[in-house]
Amino acid sequence: MHQEQQQSGSRLSALVRDDTLVLEVEDNGRGRNGEPEGAGLAGMRELAAQVGGILTITTPSGGGTRVEARLPLADRARGRHEVTPPPCSGS
């Protein structure tokens, strides 16, 4: 169960740097406060790795949470990677 985030703003950006798609999501909520990574974040990290990418989750100094995915475009364009998300578990 997740606590209410007490968030008043968020930001989403998507850009291409060289052959990499960079996706960033940031909010100004309370941050993770040292909480362990849940199944959702672990699943996103695993999916990014399956296509040769990385996912980082940080808490900026001013608070909130920042999630950044760096996904390679060159291999994807050649059709090298095909990812099937794992089934969702009902909770």
Rank of each mutant, 00 (worst) to 15 (best):
M1P: 07
Q7S: 11
A69N: 02
T58S: 13
T56I: 04
D18V: 01
L55E: 06
R30C: 12
C88I: 15
A49R: 05
L23H: 04
V22T: 07
Q6W: 12
S8A: 07
D27N: 14
T20Q: 14
G64P: 01
G43C: 10
G62P: 03
L21M: 15
S61Y: 00
A39C: 09
P60F: 01
V83K: 10
L23Y: 04
G38M: 05
R17L: 00
N33P: 02
Q3K: 12
Q50N: 07
G38W: 00
G40R: 03
L47E: 14
Q6V: 12
Q5D: 10
G63F: 12
L71N: 00
G52S: 14
R78E: 11
E82G: 06
R80K: 10
H81T: 03
P36D: 11
R70Q: 09
E24W: 01
Q5F: 02
R78T: 02
R30P: 10
G31H: 09
A48D: 15
G62K: 10
V25W: 00
I54T: 13
L12Q: 10
D75N: 08
L12E: 11
G29D: 03
P85T: 02
E4Q: 11
Q3R: 12
E46W: 05
N33W: 02
A77V: 09
V25T: 05
P86W: 08
G90I: 12
V16C: 00
A77S: 13
V51Y: 00
N28I: 06
